[in-house]
Simulated assay, not measured.
Amino acid sequence: MIYSRPDGGQTAAVRGQIIDGMVPRGFGSVDDRRSVAERVVVPVRNLPNPTTKKLPAKIADGIRVYAIGDIHGRSDLLQPLLAQVETDISAHFIPHPILVFLGDYLDRGPSSRQVIEQLALQSERSEVVFLKGNHEHYLFEFLKNPAFLKAWLRFGGLDTLRSYGIVTSNYSDAREQELLAMSFRLALHENGHYNFLSSLRPSFTCGDFFFVHAGVRPGVPLDQQSEKDLLTIRNEFLLSKSDFGKIVVHGHTPVPRPEIHSNRINIDTGAYATGQLSCLVLEQDEIRFI
């Protein structure tokens, strides 16, 4: 659902659910833990249309990047989008196409296990880069500390567990949490997903573009960014007009439609709630969307 704000802009939100403005204690500042609707004021402006646009940045000749936003357990959206990407590559030959996924493959949607399976299969047929999102961080926090389950459930962890067939009637019992973590770890290994999730990258650079899940901290060189900022930062990044050294392509903060700014491009269109999974296409100095 899209809520209008007094300034005329819009904010993506889902009634009764926490969207990614909330992170557990110990992983972000107090400001990071406030809701998107309370904190993030991102006007809907300069929206892309289906035509190709030019940017004052480029990637090398012969390379085309397909960047895909937060999937959040929506395999039903991922599968047709990947088919569209393959059709686009066939229709417009390029020697070196690269698919970049911006993280948050898990939680909230009903099919996290199926999403990971689709991504793993995609890596066998094309060049891919899989970035880490804060929700993948939550998964590993639960495996390391089963008591983290209570926090993870607030962010859609129950949907992930169910997709792997992990259920219980008592999520608050400490012993049950330990058993769930053991069962979940086993399921990840049995499906071949543990190694996949363990190998996710915090960022990726291609030409004049820097790909990351959440964003970067202004004033800090890109090669010195902390993983916490790369996975969770919001206000300091979103409201900054600074030149980050490269154009940052990111997700993490849901917006009604992709946003193009002079220093960043946001392609998280809240797929789990809106049914809209976005794909940004970059080639030389041109930008378009699928």
Rank of each mutant, 00 (worst) to 15 (best):
K54N: 12
P254S: 05
L149K: 00
G21N: 01
S226G: 12
F244L: 00
S35D: 07
L238T: 01
P80C: 09
R74S: 11
H135Q: 05
Y66M: 02
L131I: 02
Y3P: 01
P256W: 00
D243M: 00
H92I: 00
F209Y: 11
E124V: 14
F130I: 05
E117C: 10
P56L: 07
A37R: 09
L231H: 07
I71G: 09
E86I: 00
Q276V: 14
S75G: 12
V100H: 06
V44E: 13
F140V: 08
E136L: 10
R25C: 09
D32H: 11
Y272L: 02
P110K: 04
A187L: 08
G156I: 05
R45E: 15
K53P: 00
T11I: 14
G156M: 04
G103P: 05
T87M: 11
L78E: 05
A57C: 10
P43W: 00
V42S: 08
I89D: 00
W152S: 09
S90T: 15
L280Q: 06
R74M: 11
D32E: 15
F204W: 12
F244N: 00
C279S: 05
H261I: 01
I89P: 04
S203V: 01
M182H: 14
V40S: 01
I98K: 04
G219Y: 08
V212N: 03
V42E: 12
I89Y: 02
P48E: 03
I59L: 13
F140H: 08
